[in-house]
Structures are given as structure tokens and as C-alpha cells.
Amino acid sequence: MRYNNRLGAKGWVIGGNYSIERYLYILHRVSGLALIFYLMCHLILTSFRIAGAPTWEAAMAFVSGPFFKVGEFLVMCAGVYHAINGLRLIIIELGYCIGKPERQEYPYTPSIKKQRPLMYLLMLVVAALVAVSVVDFFIM
């Protein structure tokens, strides 16, 4: 009897001590799934506009509590992260900013290290945009 040691979906999150990009990957996936779920809800909710003003106002009143306010903020964060990290993925998946094949000397500098400056830069952009959202949502 062989023991099946495949990690399953939990291996997406906790696979071992790897560098930060592996966690950005799962965050990208989770934020993406959250956004497509939100899109479906959004389609249904905004469809109430064709039923006239009272129905629309009722629908808007339903989603106006603090719970939905936080939810809206989370969608904003997911959107910002997914967009900016997605930009990084487009760049590196098309073969830019990951260097060229070359002779490797120890300690190795693989592609994942070569794209790291880009990653830090874009994560700073994410942090800045999330900070702007925090101010706009909860302080202003």
C-alpha cells in the first residue's frame, strides 16, 4: 500500500518555507475567485435598476450597512491587488524581467530572484492604493 502524500488544496497555502511569490500566488487566486463571485452578485444587484426607482433604493438600502461597507472595501482591496499583481504576472509570464538563460554559479540567482525588484515595486503600489482606499472609505 502506497501512502498518497499529495498535499491537496492546503498545499496551495502551506507547502513549506518558500519565498514570498508562492504566497502572492495563492492570494492572487483567492482574490480572483472572490472577484468573480462578487461580479455575479453585482450583476444581480445592479439589475434592480430596470425595475424603477423604489426597487433600486430598496436594494441600495439593503447593502448600505457597515457589514457591506467592509465587504465593499475588501472587494476594492482584492481588485487592487489582483490588478497590480496580475500586471506583474503578465510581465513575467511573457518572459520579461526574469533574465536570460545563463551559466549558473552557486549561489544561484533564478528567475524568481531576478523579478523581485519588480515585485517589491508593485507591492508598494498595492500598499499605496489600499492606503488611499482606507482613507476614502473609513476616514473621509
Partner: peptide, 24 residues
């Protein structure tokens, strides 16, 4: 899929900012 994503960075970015970040 990637082209759609790239277009959405602009379009959805505008949509999000207009709908949610009035003050900004």
C-alpha cells in the same frame, strides 16, 4: 485571458475609482 486582464486594469480601475473613491 491576459489581454482581457490588461484591458480591465484600465477600465475596471476607472470604474472602481468612480464608484468608490469619490473623495479621492
Amino acid at each position: 485571458f491576459v489581454l482581457a486582464g490588461a484591458c480591465m486594469i484600465v477600465l475596471l480601475g476607472a470604474h472602481l475609482f468612480v464608484m468608490h473613491l469619490e473623495t479621492f
